[in-house]
Design a protein around this nucleic acid. Structure first.
Lengths: 137, 137
DNA sequence: ATAGTTCGTGCAACCGAGTTGCAAACTTAC
DNA sequence: GTAAGTTTGCAACTCGGTTGCACGAACTAT
């Protein structure tokens, strides 16, 4: 729904351009996190730099979050509607060794480990690797 | 001590060449994990490819482990003497946002989260980011 | 010791992800 | 409509990682 897309953009104070609508559309349809190169392939005819800057804008406005899953490229996924990307909202990600997809485990919060004295927590990246339920079958 | 270096290599079934001794020496002196580009700089005159392959060899023989800390390059650190890099031996890593160093939190095991049905755990990468005790002072 | 094989090293080249500069196209405010 | 600001597209570049190839050292069997 085009309305919803624009809504989301407005909600996060992002000017809705054609490009941004398209990218957000794709992101919304994705069940797993997507990388810049993967996003590039979704459009037969879009510029890498533009997509790159679009993702950057989205991230700055906390519409999406990025995941370092060690696959060689950053992956991006939609944030929950009212996510502010605070440490408390961090969740675990899962990278399937077989299909290579990265899942957001939205129900699995990242535990905050007891750091040694003097170490200050500000954020975390927790990626679990293994076989996803889809590949397991 | 040259003896100890050779010992470690032998223990892991790695033929001790001059190059490997030097690299292991550097790795042993490091208190924090080191990346390939950083390692390159430690030697005024060594080939990237050779260092790359040396690290690869070390990793295959479980002398070192690699950490995806999201700094843009993989970092490497020595394993504990009898580490076999099993999930149970995984520990948390800490990336300082200020000095950029990556610490092995050897005493902080990576928790194994309750994955949804059908997802199979095989390994994990848990990087905490913040300010290290050294930069905090 | 010699010839043949394997293994390690160094150089060059390449790949792919990410990033930047710049100019053209488009928006917005006046 | 014009000026100022924003977004886009293209090209170029950086940098980490990786590979092919050839030379040389080390190891093996005769």
């Amino acid at each position: 729904m085009k309305k919803e897309i624009d809504n989301k953009l407005n909600l996060k104070n992002i000017k809705p351009t054609a490009m941004r609508q398209l990218v957000l559309q794709v992101l919304t349809e994705q069940k797993t996190a997507i990388s810049l190169p993967e996003l590039e392939q979704k459009f037969e005819k879009a510029d890498k730099a533009t997509l790159y800057r679009t993702l950057k804008t989205f991230q700055e406005h906390q519409l999406i979050h990025s995941i370092e899953d060690g696959s060689g490229s950053l992956r991006y996924a939609l944030c929950e509607d009212f996510c502010t990307c605070e440490p408390e909202h961090l969740h675990v990600h899962f990278l399937c060794n077989k299909c290579g997809k990265t899942y957001c485990m939205k129900d699995l919060p990242v535990p905050q480990p007891d750091l040694p004295n003097g170490f200050e927590f500000s954020s975390a990246n927790f990626v679990v690797k293994g076989i996803c339920s889809n590949c397991k079958k």
